[in-house]
Design a protein around this nucleic acid. Structure first.
Ligand SMILES: [Zn+2]
Ligand SMILES: [Zn+2]
Ligand SMILES: [Zn+2]
Ligand SMILES: [Zn+2]
Lengths: 132, 132
DNA sequence: AACGTTATGTAATAATATAACATTTATAAG
DNA sequence: CTTATAAATGTTATATTATTACATAACGTT
């Protein structure tokens, strides 16, 4: 069951934009796109992004400084994320693989550290770019 | 067997600094620390960092915008990296676990994508911080 | 020596992100 | 409904991270 996080005005504007774009978006590109809706300053964007990340509606692609809508309906909180990134066209998609997530969530080594979160980014060439 | 990449002057200065620090360092902190050695501009630092990453002597911790010396002697090229990061003290260490690296290097899904590289970052509390 | 490649020096600027402060709006308790 | 509290917003300025552009020097090979 899904806990409803009713989004605020700015959060909704920004989430809708990212979600509709279907891919990763960068903060200042988001800013540019929402200026017509009255969001004028970087901080307004970053605040909404922070919140959206916190509640798991979007994820940050760390290697690209970009944000993407969660493509996995069951991904409530951004604690276990995995992405595949094409190094040619920069297409990004969220990997939803229960074996992988189980393997990583249960991973432990001899460091005595308890891992509560992970982010994995795979790089390569997507089908389209490979065949070029 | 290890291919020798003889480092240039700036590369050596910067690698030695990061290596001796024993942890992750940020680019502008590196810059500050090497100014007495004649490296005066950000670009000089970033160029050396780029090269050091390329040849696998250091890795970038993407979630922290920081660079750490490779702690894994067999890690020639930065194609398969995994780190554990303490969210309290920001201690970072490179995970060297052959089962994990084998699992991830062989990972494939139904996307048709061939992965040639990955970066994994685990987050949690280190032993020290956990016991506080 | 001549050539191509790699590294360096320097200045300017672009791109990403946060600090600080004032105000407003939403939520919940009494 | 009122008051208290937390969450969100607006605005300006600034900090941090990274790259562009161009000129010069050092290195490795033939
Ligand atoms: Zn997700
Ligand atoms: Zn592609
Ligand atoms: Zn390594
Ligand atoms: Zn710690």
């Amino acid at each position: 069951m899904q806990k409803e996080h009713s989004l605020s005005k700015n959060q909704k504007i920004i989430f809708d934009l990212i979600d509709k774009s279907g891919g990763p978006m960068k903060a200042y590109s988001i800013l540019f796109n929402v200026q017509k809706k009255g969001i004028k300053a970087p901080l307004q964007v970053y605040r909404a992004l922070d919140k959206l990340v916190e509640i798991g509606k979007i994820h940050k692609i760390e290697s690209r400084n970009a944000f993407i809508a969660c493509q996995n309906s069951s991904c409530q909180v951004s604690k276990a994320t995995a992405f595949s990134i094409c190094e040619s066209c920069e297409n990004v998609s969220e990997i939803s693989n229960s074996k992988l997530s189980k393997y990583l969530s249960n991973f432990s080594d001899d460091s005595g550290m308890k891992y509560s979160k992970y982010n994995l980014e795979f790089f390569g060439l997507c089908k389209k770019c490979k065949s070029k």
